[in-house]
């Protein structure tokens, strides 16, 4: 069961703002999503070999060789605010 408190807590952890009047709807929606996901429990595990991930891939490694990084201007392109080559988060009043 998903409670209103769960929703409030998850919203807080995710830094999302949810208005008081949205809470009931949100709680029901999240409950539905989890119920849907839970249908997997209906399936029988008998005779099914345990697998670790869906495509059963293993060891996709990269060798430890340096490739030049991006130009800083490219890296900072998405930043809202920039100063002295840094991403800048302004003080919130």
């Amino acid at each position: 069961m998903v409670t209103r408190e769960d929703v409030i807590n998850i919203a807080r952890l995710s830094k999302l703002y949810i208005a008081e009047e949205e809470l009931d709807e949100m709680t029901k929606a999240m409950g539905d999503i989890i119920k849907f996901a839970d249908t997997i429990n209906v399936a029988s595990e008998q005779g099914v070999e345990e697998f670790d991930n869906i495509n059963n891939l293993k060891n996709a490694f990269r060798e430890d060789v340096v490739v030049p990084s991006y130009e800083r201007d490219e890296i900072l392109k998405n930043a809202n605010d920039i100063d002295e080559g840094h991403f800048l988060v302004r003080k919130r009043v």
Binding site: F61, R62, D64, S69, Y70, R72, I75, G85, H86
Partner: peptide
């Protein structure tokens, strides 16, 4: 210099694919 050892993977842009370093 700040932000000069970076690429889309290590600044967390969406849609990138991290690949594990064997040496790690």
């Amino acid at each position: 210099d700040p932000n000069t050892h970076c690429c889309p993977i290590c600044i967390g842009l969406p849609g990138v694919l991290p690949k594990l370093n064997r040496a790690v």
